[in-house]
Design a protein around this nucleic acid. Structure first.
Length: 583
DNA sequence: AGACAATGTCACC
DNA sequence: TGGTGACCCTTGTC
């Protein structure tokens, strides 16, 4: 992990002003992280399919049965023949016949072949979850729309539609502003964090300043124009930093919510903070009593900080007196995590909560009691996030682990079922920060949302996980933003409140994207017709094959399984989605 | 290059 | 209801 030695991660291919763009965490920030730092008492017992995951395709069929020692890997085949896990007495016969690592049957193999992932045909589609086809042939993947299911109650010409037309549409511009997709990697901060990035927030007044939090509780502050100006504070929280909010009355201060059960109010210049709330005053007494805070939002009208924990309760904090107000109120199923909170931008007393109980709920915080939501929006699985639309507050956008993004067009209307369900791959949650679709705060029409994609696509022989821009009014995929050097998944994405800038948190790194310049656009127009929306990224133009996973990696990093995918160049199909344009 | 751990949700008992 | 084990495209370290 040599510090930077000429990090070959030179990201500003465009060399604007010759800045060097990518830096690694500086020495003093870099701490040795040993993998046994957290309790290693849960010893891994997942030895099973190590063998089956072999990816080479040479066809040595069957090899000898072997007498295994108790500690040896248990053969999947043995597992299939009813050999009990853990019952490891005596010799076990192991057949090394190639089996599918997913279903343990022979005759097919799931896994990456080059940059293409071959599904196990025995499983339902990984994307839409329906049986009968695999991800590769899923209609939601093949269709340009990327999978929109129109809701039953669309365009019914009822009085509700009339209300919607007159009240809502009247307030929002029908003329789409010129909208550029920030699809060009401008710069990156590699391994700025010690653990995966969990949240990002642009500073509302200090231009070019990005705040970031990670799984260890580290708070990062980075000026991405002055690339070297970056600070991390590691004493603010002791574990996952789940949410951040800059104080609206003092923009030098930030509220942070963490799985350590505290809310901190921290000075951005000094890193010195005071705990506003500690839900674990008695320390660790086991997981059943440990409070974690995920959802947090500020009601600027009333000067209230709203906070919710992993047991389903909502807490109020008075911003000025820094004290708790009232009792905690149960807003989701008792014992279940509240994943996000959002105050309506137009009516701050209206709150949207999302939870692990498969519901998003709307509340009136002025008369809040348990079991008194204004509405409960049912979802198929855990709801990762829910947001009101950023201007009118009339729409709702939720991200659910059933691989669907749901949109409600009008909160005063019938909320029984969503106006739209958009199939989108984002259901992985175990080792990644949960994906959250977020509105573009600059979009007056309140249609564009951004969300990272879990499932990979083969781009010129490289398996990449794009960041998707989605038209929530139609379900259309507006743009897939990716770069061949970013081979990791990008679950955390934030659009700048004013500028055409996208910030991405991917693993431990942070990236900044900008739209192409006018010159580049002109050049591109000459080549192919490009309309209002700009698709694709430089990656398309890069020579295929060579790619380079993360740039031949920065001397310490991205080695491992992912590279296998990235380096393999056998499959170099045409790029998917090329030439898409316009909406 | 390959093993493995970290770790959230869900089905099942 | 609480415990347990399984889990399809991870990521980074050893």
């Amino acid at each position: 992990m040599g510090p930077t030695t000429g990090s070959r991660f030179v990201y500003n291919r465009r060399r604007r002003g010759g800045r060097h763009a990518v830096e690694e965490a500086s020495d003093e920030e870099e701490q040795r992280v040993d993998s046994s730092s957290s309790s290693s008492d849960e010893e891994g017992d997942e030895e099973e399919d190590a063998e089956a995951s072999g990816e080479d395709i040479d066809d040595e069929e069957e090899e000898e049965a072997v007498a295994a020692e108790p500690a040896a890997k248990q053969s999947p085949a043995a597992a299939e023949t009813g050999e009990k896990r853990g019952g490891r007495k005596g010799p076990i016969s192991i057949s090394l016949k190639k089996v599918c690592k997913v279903c343990k049957r022979t005759g097919h193999q799931a896994g990456f072949q080059g940059a293409v992932y071959i599904d196990c045909p025995m499983k339902p589609c990984f994307l839409c979850k329906m049986p009968g086809h695999t991800t590769l042939t899923c209609p939601h993947r093949v269709a340009m729309e990327h999978g929109v299911i129109p809701a039953p109650r669309r365009n019914t010409n009822t009085s509700l539609d009339y209300v919607f037309q007159s009240q809502v549409k009247g307030k929002i511009s029908m003329v789409k502003p010129k909208f550029l997709i920030p699809n060009q990697l401008e710069c990156g901060n590699i391994k700025f964090h010690q653990r995966r990035v969990t949240c990002l927030e642009f500073h509302p007044t200090k231009n070019n300043v990005l705040l970031s939090g990670d799984k260890k509780g580290l708070l990062g502050i980075w000026d991405y124009v002055k690339l070297h100006e970056k600070i991390t504070y590691d004493s603010v929280h002791s574990c996952i930093l789940n949410s951040m909010k800059i104080d609206t009355t003092n923009d030098g201060m930030v509220y942070t919510a963490s799985s350590d059960g505290t809310i901190s109010f921290t000075d951005l210049d000094t890193g010195i903070g005071s705990p506003l709330l500690n839900l674990n005053p008695n320390g660790w007494n086991g997981p059943s009593s440990w409070h974690m805070i995920y959802g947090m939002d500020l009601n600027t009208d009333k000067g209230l900080l709203l906070v919710a924990d992993n047991f389903g309760f909502l807490y109020f904090l008075d911003r000025r007196s820094k004290t708790r107000i009232g009792h905690p109120i149960l807003i989701h199923k008792k014992g279940s995590k509240v994943t996000s909170l959002h105050c309506n931008p137009a009516r701050p007393e209206v709150l949207l909560s999302s939870g692990n109980d498969h519901y998003a709920r709307i509340w009136d915080t002025r008369k809040l009691e348990a079991n008194s939501p204004l509405a409960s929006l049912a979802h198929g699985r855990v709801v990762n996030s829910g947001y009101f639309s950023p201007r009118s507050g009339n729409k709702i956008l939720t991200t659910c682990q059933d691989n669907r993004i749901r949109v409600w067009d009008y909160i005063l209307g019938d909320l029984q079922s969503p106006s739209r369900e958009i199939v989108h791959s984002h259901d992985f949650n175990r080792h990644l920060t949960p994906f959250k679709a977020e509105w573009d705060p600059k979009d007056y029409t309140e249609t564009v949302a951004v969300i990272g994609r879990y499932i990979s696509e083969n781009y010129n022989g490289v398996a990449l996980h794009p960041i998707d821009f989605i038209d929530t009014s139609s379900g259309k995929l507006l743009a897939e933003v990716m770069d061949p050097d970013i081979t990791t998944i990008s679950p955390v994405n934030k659009l700048h409140p004013q500028d055409d800038i996208l910030a991405t948190g991917s693993s431990r790194s942070i990236f900044i994207w900008k739209p192409k310049t006018e010159d580049e656009l002109t050049e591109e127009r000459a080549k192919q017709k490009t309309k209002e929306y700009i698709y694709g990224s430089s990656s398309r133009k890069k020579a295929n094959g060579k790619h380079g996973n993360s740039s031949g990696d920065d001397s310490d990093g991205d080695s491992g399984g992912k590279n296998k995918k990235a380096k393999t160049t056998r499959f170099t199909h045409a790029v998917k989605g090329k030439g898409k344009s316009k909406v």
